[in-house]
Design a protein around this nucleic acid. Structure first.
Lengths: 128, 128
DNA sequence: TTGCTCACTTGCTTTTTGCAAGTTAGTGAT
DNA sequence: ATCACTAACTTGCAAAAAGCAAGTGAGCAA
């Protein structure tokens, strides 16, 4: 841990190039090692292995042997991991605003937008 | 850009060890190079210089010469940068939940919590 | 028992980060 | 005008992390 700042604390978990993309994959329902490997960004096997390990140690991910095929390990998010969803949501909302042509559903964004507008007002009031 | 995924798009801007901490500093009201250098995490001068440059190129930060003392450059967030506030907020909320003893004001968190709970319900409904 | 899949590991190269020591430009005092 | 001082970088090199290709070992199916 680099400091007692909450932002810094969070970044110690996923402030690197790959960890958050693995979390995204898990949120999208991916479960197995090869699923993560198949993602468009193209993570390397050693990096993926390392990140899954760290996420598990940090209590964000848990894994168990897949009983139907014991060579496979099934990964999933813990409650602590699922609590990262709002961060993902806000990243998506931000990207949708500033990048044209991204594949995000309109109805999803509309739902987010009201919450987001309120949040911005809250925080800007604090900063003023 | 590594893919057309919105999460990946966002991470291309700040998916590294330092960029988001600089954004946090700006949100906290820091303006000058030496202010960022003074942050508790201890960023190196070359990294800071590089990140400020990239943030400016990416339209998240803007800078101008500080007229009262022309050796100093004054940095600030653009609207695009300020729109990252909700992400910061959600990071803080997550950290507050999982790390004891972090310095976040209670009243601030209470405000955030309702929005967050609603967001989680929205998204989990989508994922089910 | 052979061959296949899957989840890793290993060894090596390239890129990024970290650190210390400059360099350049404005400023204020002499 | 020159000197000391400060602020914002830049440079060079060492250390760490990421990227890539080629293994390895454990289950499974024929």
């Amino acid at each position: 841990m680099r400091s007692d700042c909450p932002v810094s604390y969070a970044l110690d978990f996923f402030g690197d190039k790959w960890t958050f993309l693995v979390i995204r994959d898990l949120l999208e329902g991916k479960k197995f090692y090869k699923d993560f490997l198949g993602s468009k960004e193209g993570i390397a096997t050693n990096i993926l292995s390392d990140r899954l390990k760290k996420l598990e140690v940090n209590g964000i991910v848990e894994s168990k042997v897949y009983e139907k095929l014991k060579t496979m390990k099934q990964y999933s998010l813990t409650p602590k991991g699922k609590d990262l969803i709002p961060i993902v949501v806000e990243m998506m909302a931000w990207s949708a605003k500033y990048k044209t042509g991204l594949a995000i559903r309109r109805d999803f964004l509309d739902k987010v937008e009201n919450n987001r507008a309120q949040l911005i007002r809250n925080i800007e009031a604090r900063l003023a």
